[in-house]
């Protein structure tokens, strides 16, 4: 199960990076979202996947799920959610102000 999840995270990373290298702003933002999904899935996988086990450690429980990765993911999801929404607004304003959403045309000149 862990191997399948790792491959899935890898696929998300590759598609994310592919989209990140595009010229259109919206594609780039979708790329970052995919990468962060890949990263989150990866953290979950790293804590070992177990079905039906409670996330607590008590004396009479032998099988338990590691709660730490879940706490880490939650934090990370919130952060990437915030950054993605910020990016969407930023991209909207940037494309409106500059008259293009093509990153190729947004290269800076030195003296402006």
């Amino acid at each position: 199960m862990e191997i399948i999840m790792s491959i899935l995270a890898g696929v998300l990373f590759t598609t994310g990076v592919y989209n990140l290298l595009q010229k259109q702003m919206l594609r780039i933002i979708i790329g970052t979202a995919l990468i962060s999904h890949g990263a989150h899935l990866f953290i979950l996988t790293m804590g070992e996947l177990k079905t039906g086990a409670p996330p607590i450690l008590e004396d009479n429980i032998e099988l338990y799920t590691d709660p730490l990765p879940q706490a880490l993911i939650l934090t990370s999801i919130v952060i990437s959610f915030g950054v993605t929404s910020l990016l969407l607004v930023l991209a909207y304003r940037a494309s409106k102000e500059n008259g293009t959403d093509n990153m190729e045309k947004l290269r800076g000149n030195e003296n402006d």
Binding site: I35, S36, G38, F42, M46, L72, S80, L87
Partner: peptide, 19 residues
């Protein structure tokens, strides 16, 4: 924002590896 977001995601992945 994009470069920082990308490196942050790499950071999270690295922490997962280390964990």
């Amino acid at each position: 924002v994009l470069i920082n977001l990308f490196s942050s995601m790499l950071f999270v992945t690295t922490i997962a590896f280390l964990y």
